[in-house]
């Protein structure tokens, strides 16, 4: 059995002042993409670049590319399927994530 302290994130001497988090928005380092069991797949033929998927994404995991398409960032996408359900053109399909 390891000791309890072996699970500690850091030495107490390294704990930031007041246990504050000094780096804004550093949760981007935490990849929630591996929660996903379904993955949104975009059909660019049908997409009208309205951005509903992007604005309705709770993560947010959608980013606009140079051509104006909203592309899901699978690092964060948890696969909830909201984007597919709000897409007015049915351009997003949820497919099972291969393990």
């Amino acid at each position: 059995m390891p000791k309890g302290k072996d699970t500690a994130l850091m030495s107490w001497k390294e704990v930031p002042f007041g246990c504050y988090i000094l780096e804004p928005g550093n949760s981007v380092k935490f990849k929630t993409g591996d929660w996903r069991s379904f993955r949104p797949v975009l059909d660019k033929e049908k997409c009208i670049k309205c951005g509903q998927c992007y604005i309705m994404c709770p993560e947010p995991a959608y980013e606009q590319d140079e051509e104006g398409y909203y592309i899901v960032n699978l690092t964060y996408c948890k696969g909830c399927g909201i984007c597919a359900s709000v897409c007015p053109k049915g351009a997003i399909t949820m497919v099972i994530e291969e393990v």
């Binding site: 699970t7 500690a8 994130l9 850091m10 030495s11 107490w12 390294e14 704990v15 246990c19």
Partner: peptide, 13 residues
């Protein structure tokens, strides 16, 4: 949130 992996160290500090 002080998860168990930091709470003890935070209190020690």
């Amino acid at each position: 949130v002080g998860i168990p992996e930091i709470y003890t160290e935070a209190k020690k500090a």
